[in-house]
């Protein structure tokens, strides 16, 4: 097969869906795993607001319920990332990426701040719209080649995947939380609680890295 990410070290078979660990996917998987562990063990940071024009500051308090909910979302996001990193099936990959998208919305939607919620809502709409190109891409891949398995599609002699399917896949991943839309996340970063919010950017980065491999592999 086309060895973009190195020779797969071992395979994990779930019926028709085969997850594979090549040096590339394994490295990304471990990164997601380590960060998920960090999220589990760390305490959230408290944001300090300085009162303008006065010699005063106050720390934003994070309730226990909010902390637990956001930690749960961040762990779920980490697990979704791990799945998206190693799965060897195009449709399964799109599902994991959608899961990353909705978890990212959940991490910020828990914050009780109108601006943050507004940003989370707009971002959630993009994540929802992003599933359209994602699923379309997977459907076009299977219709034109007869297979969803990346390993089959990467092997020599497999039918060519149309360029439009790859373009749709990349656009869909962008919609689920990606580079050009990054600036908008500044609003989201006003949300207090450091390790959880960083999970959003890390997951975006990871799925972006993985989709480049997928697109080159097909």
């Amino acid at each position: 097969m086309n060895e973009i990410g190195g020779i797969p070290l071992f395979y994990l078979e779930f019926g028709d869906i085969v997850a594979y660990f090549s040096p590339f996917t394994l490295a990304l998987f471990l990164l997601a795993l380590v960060f998920s562990v960090f999220v589990i063990v760390s305490r959230p940071e408290r944001q300090i607001d300085i009162a303008f024009g006065a010699d005063a500051f106050f720390a934003k308090d994070i309730s226990l319920a909010e902390l637990r909910f956001r930690r749960f979302m961040a762990i779920a996001c980490g697990l979704a990332c791990m799945g998206a990193m190693v799965t060897g099936d195009v449709f399964d990959f799109t599902l994991f990426v959608s899961l990353v998208g909705i978890c990212n919305v959940g991490i910020v939607a828990a914050v009780k701040n109108h601006h943050v919620q507004d940003a989370a809502y707009q971002y959630g709409l993009v994540a929802l719209a992003g599933t359209v190109p994602l699923f379309s891409a997977a459907a076009i891949v299977v219709t034109t080649t007869g297979s969803l398995s990346m390993l089959e599609l990467a092997s020599p002699g497999a039918p060519a995947v149309p360029l439009i399917a790859r373009a749709l896949l990349v656009l869909g991943v962008m919609g689920e939380g990606m580079a050009p839309f990054y600036a908008a996340k500044a609003e989201m970063f006003r949300a207090p609680g450091a390790p959880y919010v960083i999970m959003c950017s890390l997951s975006s980065l990871l799925i972006f890295l993985r989709v480049t491999e997928v697109v080159l592999l097909l």
Partner: peptide
């Protein structure tokens, strides 16, 4: 940076 523009752009 204006999040109202994100969805129309996408």
């Amino acid at each position: 940076s204006n999040y109202d523009n994100i969805l129309p752009l996408f």
